[in-house]
Amino acid sequence: MEVLEEAELCFPQLLNSSCKKPKRPHVQLVVTYVVLSFITVLTTTLNLLVIISISHFKQLHTPTNLLLLSLAVSDFFVGIFTCFQMLLIDGCWYLGDVMCTLYQYLAYIVTSASIGTMVMISVDRYMAICDPLRYQTKVTQRKVQLSVSVCWIFSVVLQTLLLWGNLVHPGRFTSCSGECVVAIDYIAGLADILLSFIGPVAVIVLLYLRVFVVAASQARAMRSHIASVTVRGSVTVMVKKSEMKAARTLGVVVVVFLICLCPYFCVTLTGQDALLNPSSVAFVTCLFYFNSCLNPIIYAFFYPWFRKCLRFIVTLQILQPDSSEANVL
């Protein structure tokens, strides 16, 4: 009986202070481990390919692709942090309070930066579709680089302020050895909800509703005048079609993003995770991390340039001199 009780502890040698392992079906643990391992490998590999593609090929150095690069960087780190999430599958954290706090802190920064990047992608598509004549002058590479830098800096500052107490005193909210917990007060939590979830999601939804309304009206206008356009007008039509295709592609990215993240945020921010069964919590968590490997898959389906870049990378043509000048569009 004593052996059985010790086997249920995270640290059997610490009988009085160790956390107990939650009772979960062995099949569920194995399935969760396999799924998270698959997500980790797929997420890090695919997003690394996106990072290499956009960074290497000069044709891809556009404002919109810089935003995709920022998103790929954040998704890549999400894949890295999934490895740490796998350590919590059996309900125990074995790396100590400092590593727990650092892991949670960096994970929150990356998630916040990812959400901020989604907002900027929505703004970019809004400007391209709703104000196409001034898009190239208003949205430049320098401005996008500055915006991306501000987004990441804001994420670091925000999470530092929210988790300051945890950073100064790691493990202050843990009740037993083997627990990985960070906590913030009510006001900070409310600010986090508004700045990291409700506000960005509202902006994303409103901008994309406006984008698709304008895109639909432009599509109708183009169809009605397609027979009478000049050669110059045909070029304009092609440009508008290209922008709309990009809007649809990134719209899919945004919708998938909301589908994957909303359940996780709704559960964690309302405290309902304690009321759900372990299977539901595992599903919501896997869905949250799975979003980060879906974006490159979406690019592969919708962006021919990504498929060309993959061929260059897989066949090692990327190592040839002047490969950065290759035509991938």
Rank of each mutant, 00 (worst) to 15 (best):
V284K: 08
W305L: 03
L261K: 15
E8N: 13
P304S: 03
V237M: 11
S74N: 10
F76Y: 12
T236L: 04
I115R: 06
Y105V: 01
L329G: 08
L14S: 12
A326P: 08
A274H: 14
R220Q: 13
A183M: 13
P22D: 02
N277T: 06
N16G: 00
V73I: 14
V255L: 10
P25H: 05
V144C: 01
V237C: 01
L146W: 15
I153E: 01
L316W: 09
R210Y: 01
E243A: 09
L261Y: 13
K23T: 12
S149F: 09
G116I: 08
T270H: 00
I54N: 06
I153H: 00
Y299L: 15
S18K: 04
G189S: 10
L67W: 06
T64P: 00
L42Y: 02
F197D: 10
K308D: 02
A191V: 15
L66G: 05
L194N: 07
I204E: 14
L133E: 15
W152I: 14
M86T: 05
V203N: 05
L194K: 12
L29K: 11
L49I: 12
T101S: 14
H61R: 14
F288C: 12
V213E: 10
F77E: 11
A282Q: 08
V252G: 03
G116S: 07
G178Q: 13
V256Q: 07
L163R: 06
Y299V: 08
F84A: 09
E2W: 03
V144R: 08
C10F: 09
G91F: 00
A247T: 06
N295Y: 03
M120W: 13
C262S: 11
I184D: 01
F212Y: 12
P278F: 01
T160N: 06
L319S: 11
R311N: 06
T117S: 09
F265A: 04
I318T: 10
G233N: 07
L9C: 02
S18W: 01
L329C: 04
L49Q: 10
T249Y: 00
R134C: 04
S234Y: 11
V235S: 11
H225A: 07
F154H: 11
C83D: 01
I259N: 01
L15R: 15
F38G: 05
C286S: 12
P278K: 08
V148E: 08
A282C: 05
L88T: 13
D97P: 03
L46C: 11
E243M: 07
D273P: 01
V148H: 04
I259T: 04
L87W: 00
V35F: 02
G165M: 08
S177M: 10
A300P: 12
